[in-house]
């Protein structure tokens, strides 16, 4: 949905700002303010309503059910960021433009950051509801494997010196890592019994999320965290783009000399 939103905004921007000769629609969206403010407002609402609105009274979970507004959106954000990274990797492979590679790397890095947050919050939550930080739950294992494939992405890139080669191998590996993540997180854990809700064949959240009070906070929370994740990712994209352009300038000046 977010992608569609971004895409429609991109088309809209392309139509209306033609005369403003601003280089690229991607760059333009990253400079827009409205979606950042929207994300901030949604998160402020999440913090306030997430603690004040009623939640179902469930044994063992008790008040920790409110973690749903904070732990689960980490994974949604990670998924969206990894998706964007994989999309830019595909784009890089077809265009060969190193700028696309910068987008792919920074989106993926932000995704890794959110996956670490999701893992840590999940372990903290598990300690007090399932009894221990790590209980070899299928979803925990699948997610850990997926995170390891993404850590390997950073290590792989770090090991290649040539920029073109690094970008190309990185892009191919990134697409592979994204394709691996889908079965590891979304399919395999659902085929076996798991401590996570919604496993063993059922779609997630059916038990908790059906509660209309929780939906009132959960959906805005997911949207808000996603927007914040994209904001953080685009900030590092813009920094890296500046860095890249400075480097190009340096090379150009050396050529002149």
């Amino acid at each position: 949905m977010l992608f569609l939103l971004c895409h429609s905004a991109e088309l809209f921007v392309r139509d209306t700002q033609k005369n403003l000769h601003l280089q690229k629609p991607d760059l333009l969206i990253m400079r827009l303010w409205w979606w950042k403010i929207l994300g901030g407002t949604l998160l402020l609402y999440t913090v306030i309503a997430g603690f004040l609105l009623p939640v179902p009274r469930l044994d063992i979970l008790n008040e920790t059910i409110r973690n749903l507004y904070f732990h689960v959106p980490m994974w949604f954000t990670m998924l969206a960021l990894f998706g964007a990274g994989a999309a830019y990797s595909v784009k890089y492979l077809s265009s060969g433009n190193l700028v696309d590679d910068i987008y792919a790397v920074q989106f993926t890095n932000a995704g890794i950051f959110f996956s670490i947050l999701g893992m840590l919050t999940g372990m903290e939550w598990a300690r007090y509801t399932w009894g221990s930080f790590w209980s070899n739950d299928p979803k925990q294992l699948g997610t850990a494997l997926s995170m390891l494939t993404y850590f390997a992405y950073s290590i792989l890139r770090g090991g290649i010196k040539d920029d073109e080669k690094k970008a190309r191998i990185g892009a191919v590996y990134n697409i592979f890592a994204f394709c691996m993540m889908i079965p590891l997180i979304f399919i395999l854990p659902r085929m076996v019994d798991s401590l996570h809700p919604g496993n063993g064949g059922n779609p997630a959240f059916s038990k908790y999320d059906l509660d209309s009070d929780m939906r009132l906070v959960f959906y805005p929370a997911v949207a808000g965290w996603m927007l914040l994740g994209f904001w953080i990712a685009t900030l590092s994209v813009r920094t890296q783009l500046l860095h890249f352009e400075l480097e190009q300038k340096d090379i150009h000046q050396k050529d002149i000399q």
Binding site: R31, K36, W231, I232, L235, R238, T239, L242
Partner: peptide, 13 residues
Amino acid sequence: FLVKLDRKISKLE
């Protein structure tokens, strides 16, 4: 903090 960082980067751009 994020707003400040964003504005700084915009200025650099």
